[in-house]
Design a protein around this nucleic acid. Structure first.
Length: 478
RNA sequence: GCGGGUGUAACUCAGUUGGUAGAGUGUUUGCUUCCCAAGCAAAAUGUCGCGAGUUCGAAUCUCGUCACCCGCUCCA
């Protein structure tokens, strides 16, 4: 059944809160913009995502190991990575049209236009003025003056009623130690990757790794977003699942293609996201550190948006750290006696974004026996609750038998027990949270030791032996 | 941050020209029921987003503020 996109998001938000997937953060104090809490079912689902990712990365690859780096790092890390200098965007607003632009983008567009028009003299002048901005005392002022001097207009509206250029610092600053002064400034990491780069030699040495090898990490990162929103899609505090793969320079292209294929397959095959909702996006404009970049995007109800970036980061990061720390970041290949700074292929996935993609992908409204129902068609391995154990009636010893089965199954996976209301209502409750199987204990169970398994997707039933239930569910979780 | 919209029960929403809050769903308890939101009976839950102001009196009018939704920009 097809629903209007905006309706789907509203329904997801409402369902997520009602059933304990996601609550607004500190809600009793009016919440906090763009922050959310994962509830009992949400934390289970998220844990499943992370576990699947971790196992896929580290267990299935003998040359990938994991770390868990600290969120706070020496602030010089962020000078080396370029975040202190460039991870803040100069923004400018047009008073007439109320539109907002990146000031540097306006100038770059202008330069591009001059180049296309073949106005070489003008081009030279603007280009050098733009290059001088970096060394200007007040770079925002310099950008502003350049925009005014060149009479640069907005590319989409042609208007040019500009405000001052203002800086948006995307890194969270805080103070380490009880006394707050300039020397105590530390940052909440805006990406987990740097925790990997700075540990390159530690990990290589202690795990006896030889290039090519990878380091995987799951952890929180923080960014002050200019525009937040779309539920948990763009949060200021979010969780990344990143892997940096270190390769010999010149071989990065092959590694890149291999990871591209593997990562896409993970979403479509392992997690069961609908393939037609997944898209590739190739970056034309590359970040300063990259030589090739693709994103895997998912078709959310609010648009096609990124869930994972696969980027060829060159040797930029290690080289920077070598320069800023003064420590050698080279790798020595003992077989060939070559020394080099490895190139890096990065796979960087947004855990919360994937969570949202899974919810959006799974949300269904259909009809069973003439009655509408809401269902989350989650793959069994990501579903928070693997099975529900339901006595058909409370009486006649069925409750006791079902409780016994619940205790037994609970040792292997998360199950729910429910004896409240009619059996149909209880099936629907489980459908709504994506539980793939309902195990129902009836009279026959007491007599001959069998139960029925009711399948979420088809509502069909199958009778199996009580002793086989655990095995049956296990088989479906592979 | 800017423009537009919205905040009333867990959810979806009513609430008249200002007179101290309702419905449906859900939840809880009991009865009934041998398989898909059935029925019967009872119950709990609101500082009407928050704070000021006007008024004898504010969910309702005014101002401020916070959050959310839709656009502008960035990215995981």
């Amino acid at each position: 059944m097809n629903l209007p996109p905006d309706k789907v998001m509203h329904k997801l938000v409402s369902l997520a809160k009602r059933r304990g997937f996601i609550y607004p953060s500190s809600e009793i104090y009016e919440g906090l913009s763009s922050c959310f809490d994962y509830g009992p079912l949400g934390s289970e689902l998220k844990k499943n995502i992370k576990e699947l990712w971790w196992n896929t990365m580290t267990r299935r690859h003998q040359n990938i190991v994991g770390i868990d780096a600290s969120i706070l790092m020496n602030p010089r890390v962020w000078e080396a990575s370029g975040h202190v200098a460039s991870f803040n965007d100069p923004m400018i607003d047009d008073r007439t049209t109320k539109r907002r632009y990146r000031a540097d983008h306006l100038i770059e567009n202008h330069i591009e236009k001059l180049r296309r028009d073949g106005k070489d003299e003008e081009l030279q002048k603007v280009q050098s003025a733009y290059e001088n901005v970096a060394s200007a005392e007040d770079s925002n002022r310099a950008l502003y003056e350049l925009i005014i001097a060149e009479k640069i207009k907005a590319p989409d509206t042609g208007s040019g009623d500009w405000t001052e250029v203002r800086q948006f610092n995307l890194m969270f600053q805080c103070n380490m130690g009880a006394v707050a002064d300039k020397s105590s400034i530390v940052y909440l990491r805006p990406e987990t990757a740097q925790g990997i780069f700075v540990n390159f030699h530690n990990v290589r040495e202690s795990s006896r790794m030889r290039v090519p090898f990878g380091i995987a990490q799951i952890g929180k990162a923080f960014r002050n977003e200019i525009v937040k929103g779309n539920f948990i899609f763009r949060m200021v505090e979010f969780e990344q699942m990143e892997m940096q793969y270190f390769v010999k320079p010149g071989t990065q292209k092959g590694a890149f293609e291999a990871w591209r294929e593997e990562r896409f397959a993970w979403y479509s095959t392992a997690l069961g996201l609908r393939a037609e909702k997944l898209h590739w996006y190739k970056h034309d404009k590359l970040a300063h550190y990259a030589d090739l970049a693709y994103d895997i995007k998912y078709e959310f109800p609010f648009g096609i948006e990124e869930i994972e970036g696969i980027h060829s980061r060159t040797d930029f990061d290690l080289k920077q750290h070598q320069e800023y720390s003064g420590k050698n970041m080279e790798y020595i290949d003992q077989l060939t006696n070559e020394r080099f700074i490895p190139y890096v292929v990065e796979t960087s996935a947004g855990c919360d974004r994937l969570f949202l993609a899974l919810l959006a992908d799974a949300y269904r409204e259909d009809v069973v026996d003439g009655e509408e129902r809401v269902m989350l068609k989650l793959a069994p391995k990501v579903a928070p609750v693997k099975a529900a154990v339901l006595p058909l009636m409370k009486k006649g010893g069925m409750g006791e038998k079902a409780a016994q089965l619940r205790d037994e199954l609970s040792e292997s996976f998360l199950v729910q027990y429910d004896d409240a209301g009619s059996i149909g209502k209880r099936y629907r409750r489980q459908d709504e949270i994506g539980t793939p199987f309902c195990i129902t204990v009836d009279h026959q169970s007491l007599e001959e030791g069998t139960v029925t398994v009711r399948f979420r997707d088809s509502a069909a039933q199958e009778r199996i032996d009580l002793s086989r239930v655990r095995e049956f569910i296990c088989e479906k979780l592979v």
